[in-house]
């Protein structure tokens, strides 16, 4: 957990940075950075990704903790949603002439 050592130097572990751009807004991925621990990762994230008040809150997450879908299974993985138009309001026919 304390980073990798190479060529007699230390590189620290990798973190993903998520910033909330404003009150009430969803967090979005800003980028990544290296830091020895969470506290330093948070401070570095502020200095690297929020130098101009781009964020009101920051999350840092060890990159290796992220589980993601892969491009190879993107078809079958999202397939269940592709044939269900009845999940959208336009699927249903209603009379005209008033507000729904």
């Amino acid at each position: 957990m304390t980073g990798n050592r190479k060529g007699g130097d230390t590189a620290h572990q990798l973190w993903e940075v998520f910033t909330q751009p404003g009150d009430g807004k969803p967090f979005e991925h800003a980028g990544s950075l290296h830091a020895a621990d969470g506290e330093l990762a948070l401070q570095n994230a502020r200095d690297v990704y929020a130098r101009r008040s781009e964020a009101v809150a920051i999350w840092v997450v060890p990159s290796k903790a992220i589980v993601s879908s892969t491009p190879e299974d993107v078809g079958p993985f999202f397939d269940p949603a592709n044939d269900k138009p009845y999940r959208h309001p336009q699927f249903y026919r209603v009379p005209q002439g008033f507000r729904m």
Binding site: T2, T10, P62, A65
Partner: peptide, 18 residues
């Protein structure tokens, strides 16, 4: 500085680990 940050993280790891 890098070495000190690593040493500090290692020392506090049990408390700070995810």
């Amino acid at each position: 500085v890098r070495a000190a940050a690593e040493a500090y993280a290692a020392k506090h790891e049990p408390a700070a680990s995810v």
